[in-house]
Design a protein around this nucleic acid. Structure first.
Lengths: 139, 139
DNA sequence: GTTACTGCAAAGCTTTTGCATCCCT
DNA sequence: AGGGATGCAAAAGCTTTGCAGTAAC
């Protein structure tokens, strides 16, 4: 929270609300989710402010922009390297804090400078599994 | 190609061109890429046809819709389970046909029905690595 | 002859941008 | 006071949809 000021960002009430919502949040919200939540307290807040703040946070490495939902970007305040379970039905995302110790052959490393990796496990969450999953074939 | 007819799809010249372009294609093209390519032979083709065809193929499991580029969907005719290297700079995508044999704890399996996984390695491709990579912090 | 596909245009969503005003520092 | 942030509205991309005409079966 104070780190915010330290890195040269102005701490406005709107941003404070966004930060509070994101802090410890494991729901991997979209910009829309964040907007809807913060709007309860700041009915006048605009998407511009939400996107602007998210971009500022992302640029400084304080949040991660996830590309795991084909429909929209999701944001994750957990910047610790970790992986994700994605429910194919309800699109919920769950953290997987495990180290899988993935190593690629030297031969590959020569042709591509690998800086990191991210595993997406896809399947069905408990709720959607119970209901029985008529999938449309998407992966 | 003939499988197309077998599964109840009409084989039009436009679709044939799309199929030909996709066959063996490892560039992971976007809808725009496909449109631009097919347009050389069929100047009148529309995005509706491209998207329509891609959706028909995806629904039948003949192609994969990839969610690895934050800006747009990419399509992959390689439906064999495999992983990807993504260049953070030029967004090129390279296949990784290796089995990493990832296993998750039983405890996790109980709470989530895992149907598959996909690893994205991110980093810099050979070309972009040479140029030196001023990144904007995106992952 | 049917039915599905095509092309076009319009619309839908998510995300970005320009700009005048405001307010955090 | 100064510069960044805000809210609004418009615009930009990507993707979807409605519809009338057309072509594959």
């Amino acid at each position: 929270m104070e780190r915010f000021r330290e890195i040269g960002l102005k701490l406005t009430p709107q941003r404070m609300a966004i930060l509070e919502y994101l802090d410890g949040n494991t729901t991997h919200p979209s910009a829309e989710d964040i907007y809807q939540h913060v709007r309860k307290r700041f009915p006048m807040i605009s998407f511009a402010t939400v996107y602007n703040t998210l971009e500022a946070l992302r640029k400084r490495g304080l949040i991660l922009e996830l590309t795991i939902d084909p429909e929209r970007k999701r944001y994750d305040p957990n910047i610790h390297p970790h992986h994700h379970l994605i429910c194919l039905k309800c699109k919920s995302v769950v953290d997987v804090e495990l180290d899988f110790n993935i190593t690629v052959p030297e031969e590959l490393k020569g042709r591509f400078e690998i800086l990191g990796n991210h595993i997406e496990f896809y399947g069905l969450c408990e709720k959607c599994s119970e209901k029985g999953g008529e999938s449309d074939g998407s992966v």
